[in-house]
Amino acid sequence: MAAGGDHGSPDSYRSPLASRYASPEMCFVFSDRYKFRTWRQLWLWLAEAEQTLGLPITDEQIQEMKSNLENIDFKMAAEEEKRLRHDVMAHVHTFGHCCPKAAGIIHLGATSCYVGDNTDLIILRNALDLLLPKLARVISRLADFAKERASLPTLGFTHFQPAQLTTVGKRCCLWIQDLCMDLQNLKRVRDDLRFRGVKGTTGTQASFLQLFEGDDHKVEQLDKMVTEKAGFKRAFIITGQTYTRKVDIEVLSVLASLGASVHKICTDIRLLANLKEMEEPFEKQQIGSSAMPYKRNPMRSERCCSLARHLMTLVMDPLQTASVQWFERTLDDSANRRICLAEAFLTADTILNTLQNISEGLVVYPKVIERRIRQELPFMATENIIMAMVKAGGSRQDCHEKIRVLSQQAASVVKQEGGDNDLIERIQVDAYFSPIHSQLDHLLDPSSFTGRASQQVQRFLEEEVYPLLKPYESVMKVKAELCL
């Protein structure tokens, strides 16, 4: 049975990233139509530049190519590739079939990587351009969430054990800070992308030097003109047959890092959902379990974690691919890159769409948070109580021993009897502590235990987050809708 299948058929496997999760716009960027249309555009740009620099290419040939950029006979191309065992030459023939007058000058002087690699770089750039505003929107939604809850005390956790208090907004800023680093890295790697350009079979530009009869300047002009037509500021000066596969490492490393950030955020949300302090959106008709109707599973956060793990592992592909590119190139890269580049971007696209949807509907339960604080705060307040007693004339050592005994009794009630923490009640009825009984409410005010959390939130948002989001103001209103 021949390899390949009808990918629109229910009898043929289709990647869930495309069929179930990723956005239509990201799927289109990695589609065959987008790819092969870009090949034709690159052939047109090459012909236009070659004509401008004096090669015998007519206006009629150029116009014929322009008129057929979208006229792609995919069936013919597939048949040609089956016959020739070469995808680029299959599309040269297919393009030439609908451009008979231009057929002889299509791909003039070029090698397969002229269309293959340059198209990949265009796709990487455009895919990054799709991700950047999506990530900015996630940051914006979380920034709104953090600002609104900047002063809401909550129990902090280290080692997932109760620690000092923080605020809900401050905790959210930990998430935002990681995503801001990801946004900066995505922008950097996007701006650092260079075009492969017009380089020939081993990167020496020998074929173009021959076409222009040894004119170095025209060869350099050709490279520059096509690079500018493709919208790049610069091209690699040095290439082998391909652009260095280190570029793929750079791009997928940034995406993998984004995956790590999203995994951490969504894990926190899942843990908070278990504590009943916070939940992701839950639709009115949504079913959490087929057997347990009360369940409210954090399905979206779980999906993000599941896909983020996949995204983090994909960076190993370009690392290994770059390491086995012998001399000017081997074909070890080809099949692998067809999979890992598309999957990385479709996965990143999915987790950003999902995280935006989550961040637009996060639900906080202040009463649950308050109750958990009441359970733990008495123990945390013991040092403040000791200091207040010393100020009232008591002995630190005597007070410490009193607190120690009462704390152990209260802990026994919590752990052995399943009761509430009654340390404060014990202190309130103990005559030894009568000098500070009137101060206990103040000493137990949760806001006095959150330090500068709310001020940190305000400063972080104003100095770091809002300036970073400013270039994306025009796209901030787009909502994230999930079908599944």
Rank of each mutant, 00 (worst) to 15 (best):
S412P: 04
C99S: 06
R190C: 11
L406Q: 07
P100Q: 11
Q409L: 08
M26P: 01
C483K: 09
D178R: 02
Q397L: 07
D144W: 12
V478L: 15
Q63I: 10
F236H: 12
I57Y: 05
K66E: 08
T202I: 08
L423R: 02
L258T: 08
V198N: 15
C266T: 14
V414S: 04
F460A: 03
S67R: 13
Q375C: 05
I358M: 14
D223M: 06
E343A: 07
H86D: 01
E81H: 04
D182R: 01
S289Y: 01
V168Q: 04
G393K: 08
Q61E: 09
K170R: 14
D430W: 07
D87R: 01
R234N: 10
N421G: 05
I373V: 10
V364H: 05
I436A: 04
F433L: 06
P133G: 14
F145C: 12
R137H: 09
L255G: 04
E25F: 08
S257F: 07
P281W: 05
F30L: 14
R337E: 00
A206N: 10
Q41E: 11
D6W: 08
R85I: 09
T350N: 13
A77F: 15
I351G: 02
D398V: 13
Q408P: 04
L406K: 12
E280I: 00
R459I: 11
G259L: 02
M278C: 11
E279F: 06
I106G: 01
L69G: 12
V315P: 09
G109T: 03
A127F: 04
E79Y: 15
M26A: 05
G54E: 14
D268W: 03
S67P: 09
K276Q: 05
R338T: 04
I106L: 07
A78D: 12
Q375Y: 05
A49M: 03
E343I: 04
E277P: 01
E462A: 10
E401S: 11
A273W: 03
V262I: 09
G418P: 03
A49P: 00
E48V: 06
Q320T: 11
I369T: 08
G203F: 05
L121A: 11
P435C: 07
K276P: 01
K246H: 06
L55E: 11
L319M: 10
A90C: 10
C304P: 00
K134S: 10
D117G: 05
N68T: 11
M225C: 08
L255P: 03
C399Y: 06
E370G: 08
V324I: 07
P24W: 08
D398M: 12
L53H: 04
V364K: 01
S454E: 14
C113G: 15
F208L: 14
D87L: 06
D144L: 15
K218G: 10
F433R: 03
R303L: 02
M299N: 08
I436M: 06
L183K: 05
P366V: 05
I386Q: 08
P435T: 06
L108V: 09
S334P: 01
H310T: 08
P293T: 00
M225W: 06
S12W: 08
S290W: 01
L484F: 15
E70V: 09
S253T: 12
M312Y: 05
A381M: 09
D398P: 05
V457W: 01
F236I: 08
K284Q: 12
K367A: 14
F145E: 10
E283L: 11
R37G: 09
T94L: 14
R20L: 01
C340I: 15
F379Y: 03
L346T: 13
A110V: 04
L444G: 03
R37T: 09
V475Q: 13
R85M: 14
N297K: 00
F345Y: 08
S434R: 11
D268A: 08
T313S: 12
S434D: 10
D120A: 06
L319Y: 09
Q439Y: 05
N185D: 06
V115G: 02
A136K: 09
Y472R: 12
L355T: 09
E463K: 09
T52D: 11
V226E: 02
L272G: 12
D216M: 07
M299Y: 08
A163L: 03
F449P: 03
M292N: 02
M181G: 08
A291W: 02
L193R: 03
A206S: 06
E462K: 13
S289I: 01
Q210R: 15
S438E: 14
K35T: 08
D178S: 07
A2S: 15
G394L: 07
N274T: 14
E302L: 00
E343Y: 07
T239L: 06
L186V: 11
L341A: 14
P24G: 10
A344S: 09
E213K: 15
K75L: 09
Q458E: 12
F74S: 12
V29L: 10
A235N: 13
V219Y: 02
A146V: 06
K75C: 11
I249T: 08
K233L: 09
N185K: 08
G451T: 02
F433H: 05
R426I: 04
P467N: 11
C483T: 15
Q221I: 11
N336V: 12
T450F: 05
A3I: 15
S257A: 12
F345R: 02
A381I: 08
Q184N: 11
F28L: 08
P281A: 15
Q458N: 09
P298V: 03
K367L: 04
Q285R: 13
I249A: 11
S257D: 07
K233S: 10
G8T: 15
G54S: 12
D420P: 04
A291G: 02
D441Q: 15
A260K: 03
K170P: 01
G451R: 03
G5P: 06
D349H: 07
H263F: 00
I57Q: 02
A150P: 06
F30M: 12
D248T: 03
T52R: 11
F28V: 06
E79N: 10
L252T: 13
A381T: 14
F208Y: 07
H86K: 00
T202Q: 13
L406M: 13
A381L: 10
M181T: 11
L272M: 09
G54K: 09
A47N: 04
